[in-house]
Nucleic acid binder design. Structure first.
Lengths: 194, 194
DNA sequence: GTTCCATCTGGAACTGAGTACCACTTTAGT
DNA sequence: ACTAAAGTGGTACTCAGTTCCAGATGGAAC
């Protein structure tokens, strides 16, 4: 099916993949801060300029694969709407389902998950960026909840609470990907058991 | 009383204040991105090198006055401990008190609050840094709760939930400083009502 | 006041991220 | 095959942030 794409598009995808691959190789060899964009471009056999055409900045390459993932979960969440305006509890039930599915997904490729986690925990700038990504994702959930007719307060609060559970779970699970799912469950349990 | 400090220390404080003052003046005149560190240093009548001695990077100067503030609220929170291990509900009651006090404090200087808010909302990098500051603050609250004997889950979850309420309130209050306090109250209400 | 040390200062030179511009190549459509 | 559009990579630039150093300055001792 990727055969069906126009040549130009295939080339673009290939270049993009090369850059991501080169970047993660280099990040594995030495720390994020010690790898320059020029290094990445050279290994990917691409001009430095081209790197910045594909990724807005050096940090973006670390999150290259996540955009599609996050969008698909926004869709998942939208599909969970019942048509009636959700209360906070209902909204949290929906979010719990979505967050758990997300955990399963991101921990399925353990190597990538760990490499990513290491980068993010060791570099404050990447941690910041990661948080921004999550916040952006939460915003799309806010929009979903508004469409479902939730009150402003519920629509804004629920995703923030879901995020809080997820971040809590991340902190408690540390670098054990198998513990993440249970930790998320525990956090939501604690939260919804009044 | 500042008269009593050694000359060297007074000079340091004065230089610091000059830099912050110069920076905020410039940020008011043109956007954050259009102000260079050299600009700030020149107006503050200080060498560029000196700027970086006082502030780790350009972003730090935006948050110059907040460190002491946040520390004082950590102390406030610590003083609220009852000696018995808190449940989630109790932890949230403590946090609600602290967050409300913080709201009163930061909105008391309306001009500064609005200038700061504008900077943070218009510059993603500053929004990131702001979030990092809040997260660091939350971590000290985690430590407090642990000392009080809270379970790991409660100790980590409660501050995240408090943060979620605060961020929700910020979002709902927009740039109206008088609305912030009530919005925080509403968020905590919604959260703790059964 | 003089001497001496620790600290502070700001200039110069450097690295690396990110941007703007431009000439060159490659793809797509006719 | 021809042309327009899109993609490429090189050069040169600005600015953040670091390192190094020589000179100034405050504090303490005598």
């Amino acid at each position: 099916m990727s055969e069906r794409l126009p040549l130009r598009e295939r080339k673009r995808q290939r270049a993009r993949e090369q850059i991501v691959k080169a970047a993660f190789e280099l990040f594995a060899e030495r720390s994020y801060g010690e790898v320059t964009v020029t290094d990445i471009a050279e290994r990917a056999q691409v001009g430095r300029t081209t790197f910045f055409r594909y990724f807005g900045d050096k940090q973006e390459v670390v999150f290259a694969d996540e955009q599609a993932l996050l969008r698909s979960f926004a869709d998942h969440h939208r599909a969970l709407g019942t048509g009636t305006p959700p209360t906070l509890d209902e909204a949290l039930r929906q979010l719990r389902t979505v967050v758990l599915a997300m955990c399963d997904e991101i921990t399925s490729d353990t190597d990538y998950y760990l490499a990513h986690l290491r980068l993010v925990t060791e570099n404050p700038e990447l941690a910041d960026r990661n948080t921004r990504k999550l916040a952006g994702y939460a915003d799309t959930l806010v929009a979903n909840l508004r469409e479902q007719g939730a009150s402003d307060l519920v629509a804004v609060l629920a995703p923030q609470l879901g995020l809080a559970c997820y971040r809590t779970a991340q902190q408690l699970a540390g670098d054990d990907p198998t513990a993440l799912r249970d930790a998320v469950d525990a956090a939501f349990d604690q939260l919804t058991r009044h």
